[in-house]
Amino acid sequence: MNTSNNMLLKVENLQVVYKARRETVYAVNGVSLSLKKGETLGLVGETGAGKTTTAYAILRVLPDRTAKVVNGTIEFEGKNLLEVPENLMRHGIRGEKIAIIFQDPMSALNPIMKVGDQIAEALKFHNKEELSPEKIEEQVDRTLELVGIQKERKYDFPHQLSGGMKQRVVIAIALVCEPVLIIADEPTTALDVTIQAQVLAMIDELREKLGTAMILITHDLGIVAQMCDNVAIMYAGEIIEIGSVEEIYSGKMQHPYTTGLFGSLPDLEKKTDRLYPIEGLMPDPTDLPTGCKFNPRCPRCMDICREVQPGFSVEGTHRVACHLYGGGTGRETDE
């Protein structure tokens, strides 16, 4: 599986800033990741870690007025997406090859349009094969059935559907053009547990059936364990640990932040008296600490951590950016 033509997406040293009136927010600071065909990568982190910004940068849907990609390349099927002209992005890539599923199904759907029409619209917009209206209709029905909604419901308006059904419609819109990559931005956060389980099971099944690659953005380590092949943990705009699920959940190395994330979760199988949270807060993205960005909150912080930004310590496919494991093996910093 190591041949390079299996490679679907390769992000290299991506840096994104938001410029507000007086301050610059360093949202993504040198993210590198890669994704093979049919693979699922979990992008994990808390609010403000830069997960969504990374995803939006890949799709090139960052707000023009404030956001700026300062550095990096995003290679998708051999093209650097950052250099592709916008009309090519719109016709041919965004929505067609790379689709996104948003967190909030309520605001992702147009409330005054029948759901069937919304799915058909996505298809018509990218209608390269010049499908006849009947064919489009057929494809809509097929996609609805794929996500577990009876095709008769395509005449419903979004408010007539429950939250879980709406998210299924959103997923149907994403799938209708048969993309090769889906970016799912917290797809089940707005749903109840039992509905979440239904939707996740459905996504899992579809991915297997269609062979679509996926970047799953989430804060829930449980969902990652269930769904992903590889995991990237983000903190303050950087990937601080990346590897296969096995390596992240039971590998030899573990970034103290990852340890903190696991410690913050109550264990369902054992009775614990106390949780071990990470003390302190996310750093101010306009004024990030020097050295390791996690150092002010890190229980195992050393002197070097305050000075030098750690590089990756590598073990197989597992990479951890922490001085505890050596970490000093030079890492480009653009400060």
């Binding site: 429950s162 059904m165 547990v193 979440q196 829930d220 449980g222 364990a225 699920v245 096995e246 369902l268």
Partner: peptide, 20 residues
């Protein structure tokens, strides 16, 4: 339905209840 944050139940599809 709770996703467990360890690999013990990985890909063991939980019994999902139907309906909303």
């Amino acid at each position: 339905a709770i996703p467990v944050p360890n690999l013990s139940k990985r890909h063991a599809r939980p019994t999902v209840i139907r309906g909303e």
